[in-house]
Design a protein around this nucleic acid. Structure first.
Lengths: 349, 349
DNA sequence: CTGAAAGCGCTTACAG
DNA sequence: CTGAAAGCGCTTACAG
C-alpha cells in the first residue's frame, strides 16, 4: 500500500471546483479555465507566472475538471462509443483499442456500449438519445432501426453504422458485402464436388426471417445447384460451442453424413472440426468446414479454418470517418464505405 | 427502409429543450420536469390533463432529456461502469449484463471501460476522475493504484475493486483467494506424482515482479517439494494461442518432456491440450493440464479442462454492493467481500 | 493580460 | 397544483 497520500481531512471532501482553485491562486475562474484547458480567448495566454500559480493551486487541491459542467457548456461530451451486441469479440476489442489510440491526443474518452439481447433493448439507445456521447460506431449484428438512427443523427450524434441494409441518412454506413462472401463460400464447397452440405445456423435464423442472410444464402446456393437440403442438415447450434460439438458428432453418425459444413460462426466451425477429429473423420478430406467471422482461433486449429470475413484488421477508415463526422456537426454528406468480406481459404476446405 | 418519419424540416434541427416543450404545452419548465421525470416536489403531482398535454408536446417535439444538464443539476450521472483490461472475456460480458439487468429499473446506464495496456494508461481513470460515472466495478487484472482509488472514492465515486492486494479505503474490495486456489492446483499435480511440471506464463510475469502471483505460486510449490524447475519448463506463452500451441509441441519433443502443465490462462491450456493431442500425447495420462480462469471453452474440449477459477457465475453480491455504495454517497463503511476461487476438477488433470 | 457576467439545460425548494 | 427563480460548474465573448 502506498502511503504517499497527504493526511486527509478525515471526512469525505467533495470535489474542488474552479472557484476553489481561483481563490487559492488569487485569480478569477476565467483565468483558471484558460490555464487548465490550454485554450485561449481573444487575447493572449495567461502569463507563465499566472499559469504556474494556477497549476500549483489545482494540483494542491487535487482539482479535476467536472465532466458534466464542461460538457453542458461546450455542448460536447468528448466521449465516443462503440455499440455492439455481446459476446464481445476480438473485433470489438480491436476497434475499441484503435479508436482509443487514434483519438487519445484529442482528449476523447472511448467507451463500449454492449446492447445485450436479454437486456431491456432500449437502454443503450436511450444513452445515445440523451446526448451522453458525441458519436458512436455501431458494429454489425446490432439490431438497428433506421428511424431511430436518423433521429439520433438529426440530434447531432455522429454515427457510423456497420450494416448491410440500412441506407445512409445523416449518418454513414459501412458495407461488408457479407452475402457475396458467404455465397462464395458455399459455391466453393459445391465446386469442390460436395452435394450434402450441412449448415450450422444461429439460433434466431429462420428461412424467411430478417437477419438470416447466411441461412438464405446457403439455401439459395443449394437450390441454384439443385442440391437437396434435408431438414436435419440445418442445425441451430452456431451460438453454443457445446451444442455445435454435439450436433456435428451426431451428423457424422448419420447414414448419409454431410461431406461439408458451412457454419454461421467460426466458433461453431472450430467445434465442428474438433468433433470430426474426435470421431476419426479427417478434415478436409472427409469433411470440409467453412466458418464465418475470421476469428483468431481459426488459425490455431489444425487444419486452420477456412472462413469468410474481413481480411483487414485496420479500422482506420471507420475511425477517421467518425471523427470527421463528429467534428463536422452534421454538415457532412452521408457516405457509404466499403470494407468487403472475402472468402479466406485456409486448410479446412 | 421505414418511411414513418414525419417530413422533417430539412435542415439539421438541434435538440428540443424543456423550454420548447413547456411553450408548446403552455406550462412552465418546472411542470415539464415534474411530469417527465415522474418526480414530485413538495406538492402533489400535476393533474392528469396537464401531464397528458406535456407528454404529447414532448412526443411531438421528439424531446429527450439532456443528460449533461440533468447530471450537472442532480450531481449524478446515473451511469455505472465496468472497468477491465482487454481481452474482454465471458466474465466481463456476464458482469456487464448482470449489472445492466439489475439496475435497469433504476434507469441507470451501464458502460464498459476497457483500459488497454497499449493505450495511454490514464484514459480510463481520467474518465472516472472527471465524474463521468457514479460508480464502477474494477475487474481483476486491471492495474490499480491504491492512491488513485482512494482519491476517486474521496471524490464521491462508488468503487468496488476486485483485487487480491489493495486494502479497502472508501471503496470495497473483492478477494478471490487466487493464490490459495493456484497453490491447490499445483499441489494437486504434485500429489498425483508429477515431478516435471511446466508452467505457461503470461508475458509480463517475472519471478520477482508484481502481478506474478501465479508464477510465484508455481515456483513456491515446486520448491516446497524439492522439485527442480528448468528454465525451459517456464514459457511466456499464455497470452497467445498460437505461441502456446507451438511451445507445448516443442516441450513434448524434448528429451525429458514435462508430464504436467500449469497454465496461467485457460486459453493457453486448451491450446496445450490440442498440441498434445496433435502430437499423439494422451491427456491426462501422458500430460496433465490445469488452466486458470474457468472459461466456457474449457468445458468443450476433450477431456474437459481442469482449472482454477470462480465456481459461481453470479455477480449479484458485487452488483448490490456497488449500488449500495453509490446510493450511500460515501457514508458506507468499506468492506472486503469474498468470492473465492477453487480448483475445479474436470478431466484434464 | 485578466475579471465580471451570461448562459449551457436541467431540477427543486419556495411562493403563490 | 403551478410558476418564477436560483444554481449545478464550467466556458467564453466582452470590457477593461
Amino acid at each position: 500500500m502506498s502511503t504517499s497520500e497527504p493526511p486527509s481531512s478525515g471526512r469525505a471532501t467533495s470535489r474542488p471546483t474552479q472557484r476553489d482553485v481561483a481563490r487559492l491562486a488569487g485569480v478569477s475562474t476565467a483565468t483558471v479555465s484558460y490555464v487548465l484547458s490550454g485554450r485561449r480567448g481573444p487575447g493572449r495566454l495567461p502569463t507563465p507566472e499566472t499559469a504556474e500559480r494556477v497549476a500549483r493551486a489545482a494540483d494542491e487541491l487535487g482539482y479535476a475538471v467536472d465532466h458534466m459542467a464542461r460538457s453542458l457548456r461546450r455542448q460536447r461530451s468528448e466521449v465516443l462509443a462503440v455499440v455492439y451486441t455481446p459476446p464481445s469479440s476480438p473485433w470489438s476489442d480491436l476497434l475499441v483499442e484503435q479508436l482509443q489510440t487514434q483519438v487519445a491526443d484529442r482528449g476523447e474518452t472511448v467507451i463500449a456500449l454492449p446492447v445485450s439481447a436479454t437486456t431491456p433493448p432500449d437502454t443503450a439507445w436511450r444513452a445515445l438519445r440523451r446526448g451522453y456521447v458525441d458519436g458512436a460506431i455501431v458494429l454489425a449484428d446490432t439490431p438497428v432501426d433506421a428511424t431511430e438512427l436518423r433521429a439520433l443523427a438529426r440530434r447531432g450524434l455522429g454515427l457510423v453504422v456497420v450494416d448491410e441494409d440500412v441506407e445512409p441518412d445523416g449518418f454513414d454506413v459501412v458495407r461488408q458485402g457479407r452475402a457475396a462472401a458467404c455465397r462464395a463460400a458455399v459455391e466453393h464447397l459445391v465446386a469442390a464436388g460436395h452435394r450434402r452440405i450441412g449448415y450450422l445456423a444461429q439460433a434466431h435464423e429462420t428461412a424467411d426471417g430478417p437477419g438470416s442472410l447466411r441461412l438464405r444464402t446457403y439455401l439459395d446456393v443449394m437450390a441454384a445447384h439443385g442440391l437437396p437440403v434435408d431438414a436435419e442438415l440445418v442445425r441451430p447450434v452456431a451460438d453454443s460451442r457445446s451444442a455445435a460439438y454435439a450436433a456435428v458428432q451426431e451428423l457424422l453418425r448419420q447414414l448419409r453424413p454431410p461431406t461439408a459444413l458451412f457454419s454461421a460462426t467460426d466458433r461453431a466451425a472450430v467445434d465442428g472440426i474438433w468433433a470430426a477429429r474426435d470421431a476419426g473423420v479427417r478434415v478436409p478430406d472427409d469433411l470440409a468446414v467453412i466458418g464465418v467471422g475470421n476469428i483468431a482461433e481459426g488459425l490455431m486449429i489444425s487444419p486452420p479454418l477456412t472462413t469468410v470475413g474481413a481480411p483487414e484488421l485496420d479500422f482506420t477508415p471507420l475511425v477517421q470517418r467518425l471523427v470527421a463526422r463528429v467534428d463536422s456537426r452534421e454538415t457532412l454528406a452521408s457516405e457509404t464505405l466499403e470494407m468487403p468480406w472475402t472468402l479466406i481459404r485456409r486448410g479446412s476446405a
